[in-house]
Computed example of a mutant assay.
Amino acid sequence: MKTLIEYALAGMLVAAGIQNQVVSKTARSARQPFPERGFWVVETSTDRKSTIVRYYANSNHLVSETIEPEVLDVRKLSVRKYLNEKLRKELARDTTGQSAIRLYEID
């Protein structure tokens, strides 16, 4: 009887350990980069050979829209870093002043 209880306890500990690993893998990765200002939206075109990228300021103002000649996979870290760098350059070129953070947008 004691052996049966020990096996049951060991089984519960193993199950709890597996569940803990599954929960930790579904959490957001620390490697996922976020832009400091603004955001980008990616849309695959209907011909499935190019990607439309729209860059927005924090104030939801469309800064620019570009067409990338290939399909971008935003699940890849390198693609997200590339888009964040392009966003930074587009916000630096924005001369309308719409990209400035307004007081009501500050957390």
Rank of each mutant, 00 (worst) to 15 (best):
Y104W: 11
T66Q: 15
Q19R: 10
I18Q: 08
Q21H: 09
E65T: 13
L4H: 01
M1A: 01
L4F: 05
V71H: 05
L72R: 02
P35E: 06
G17E: 08
V23F: 12
R28A: 13
D47M: 01
K2L: 03
L87D: 09
K86A: 14
F34K: 11
E105N: 09
K89C: 04
V53D: 15
E90G: 06
F39M: 09
D94G: 15
W40T: 15
Y104F: 12
R80F: 03
T95R: 09
T44W: 00
T66Y: 05
T3S: 01
G38Y: 09
W40Y: 15
F39E: 15
G17Q: 05
E85D: 13
K49S: 09
R88M: 10
A100L: 10
R28K: 07
Q19K: 11
L4V: 02
P33R: 03
A57F: 04
R80A: 00
P69S: 07
L83S: 07
R93H: 12
D107C: 06
G11I: 02
V41L: 14
I52F: 14
S64P: 02
A57K: 04
E70S: 09
A27G: 05
R93E: 13
T51A: 05
E36L: 07
S50G: 04
Y104L: 10
T44R: 00
E70N: 06
V14E: 02
A8C: 01
V22I: 15
K76P: 01
E90L: 08
R28Y: 00
N84G: 06
R37W: 10
I52K: 14
S29I: 00
E85Y: 06
D47P: 00
R28T: 08
N60M: 13
L91M: 14
D94F: 12
R54G: 12
A10Y: 04
P35A: 06
A16W: 10
R37P: 02
R28P: 12
R48N: 10
L87Q: 02
L83M: 09
N20F: 11
L77W: 04
E105F: 06
H61W: 13
V53Y: 15
T46K: 11
D73K: 01
V79W: 04
G17C: 09
Q32H: 07
T96E: 10
S50I: 02
K49H: 07
I18A: 14
A92M: 06
E36C: 04
V74G: 07
R54M: 14
N84D: 05
V53N: 13
S59F: 05
N58L: 04
G97M: 04
K86S: 13
L83A: 06
S78W: 01
P33V: 00
R28G: 10
F34C: 13
Q21N: 07
L72I: 03
S29Q: 01
I101L: 12
D94Y: 07
V23C: 14
K89Y: 07
M12I: 04
I106R: 05
S99A: 15
D73I: 00
V71R: 04
